[in-house]
Amino acid sequence: MRVPFRLIGGVLVATLLTQVTACGSIFYPDRRGQIDGKIDPAIAVLDAVGLLFYIIPGLIAFAVDFTTGAIYFEPGKTAQVDPEKLKDAVGVDGKIDNRKLQTILEHELGRSFPLDDPRLIQSKGSAQQLAMFGLQPAA
Results as ranks from 00 to 15, higher is better:
residue 105 L to R: 00
residue 54 Y to S: 14
residue 65 D to M: 09
residue 56 I to N: 04
residue 92 V to N: 15
residue 120 L to I: 07
residue 86 L to N: 02
residue 88 D to Q: 12
residue 51 L to S: 00
residue 92 V to Q: 15
residue 114 P to R: 00
residue 115 L to Y: 07
residue 77 K to R: 10
residue 96 I to C: 13
residue 79 A to W: 10
residue 76 G to E: 05
residue 94 G to V: 15
residue 83 P to A: 06
residue 60 I to E: 02
residue 97 D to I: 15
residue 50 G to L: 05
residue 56 I to V: 13
residue 86 L to T: 02
residue 64 V to S: 13
residue 122 Q to Y: 04
residue 71 I to T: 01
residue 52 L to R: 08
residue 99 R to Q: 12
residue 86 L to P: 06
residue 120 L to Q: 06
residue 125 G to D: 05
residue 98 N to P: 15
residue 64 V to P: 13
residue 98 N to K: 15
residue 110 G to R: 00
residue 84 E to D: 13
residue 80 Q to I: 12
residue 121 I to K: 01
residue 98 N to S: 15
residue 59 L to S: 07
residue 74 E to G: 05
residue 126 S to H: 01
residue 60 I to K: 01
residue 67 T to L: 08
residue 104 I to Y: 04
residue 59 L to G: 03
residue 75 P to N: 02
residue 121 I to R: 02
residue 82 D to G: 02
residue 76 G to S: 09
residue 75 P to R: 09
residue 49 V to M: 09
residue 85 K to E: 14
residue 115 L to C: 07
residue 49 V to N: 03
residue 124 K to Y: 02
residue 120 L to V: 08
residue 107 H to G: 12
residue 82 D to T: 03
residue 52 L to P: 07
residue 111 R to L: 06
residue 98 N to A: 15
residue 60 I to Y: 05
residue 109 L to W: 07
residue 73 F to L: 13
residue 68 T to A: 06
residue 112 S to V: 02
residue 115 L to F: 06
residue 101 L to E: 08
residue 125 G to C: 06
residue 123 S to R: 01
residue 118 P to G: 00
residue 57 P to Y: 00
residue 65 D to R: 11
residue 64 V to Y: 08
residue 126 S to M: 03
residue 51 L to C: 02
residue 72 Y to G: 07
residue 92 V to Y: 14
residue 100 K to M: 08
residue 123 S to A: 08
residue 81 V to F: 08
residue 91 G to V: 10
residue 68 T to N: 12
residue 82 D to F: 09
residue 125 G to S: 03
residue 113 F to N: 10
residue 50 G to E: 05
residue 117 D to V: 04
residue 86 L to G: 02
residue 66 F to E: 09
residue 95 K to D: 15
residue 76 G to Y: 03
residue 63 A to G: 10
residue 75 P to V: 03
residue 100 K to F: 04
residue 71 I to N: 07
residue 82 D to K: 10
residue 97 D to M: 13
residue 101 L to Q: 01
residue 76 G to A: 05
residue 93 D to V: 11
residue 61 A to H: 05
residue 72 Y to A: 06
residue 93 D to S: 13
residue 93 D to W: 09
residue 79 A to E: 15
residue 92 V to P: 13
residue 94 G to M: 10
residue 90 V to P: 10
residue 115 L to G: 09
residue 126 S to W: 03
residue 75 P to M: 02
residue 71 I to Y: 07
residue 109 L to E: 06
residue 124 K to M: 05
residue 80 Q to T: 13
residue 99 R to N: 11
residue 52 L to E: 04
residue 69 G to R: 00
residue 93 D to K: 14
residue 102 Q to H: 01
residue 58 G to I: 00
residue 67 T to G: 15
residue 108 E to I: 00
residue 92 V to M: 14
residue 104 I to R: 12
residue 89 A to H: 01
residue 91 G to T: 15
residue 85 K to H: 10
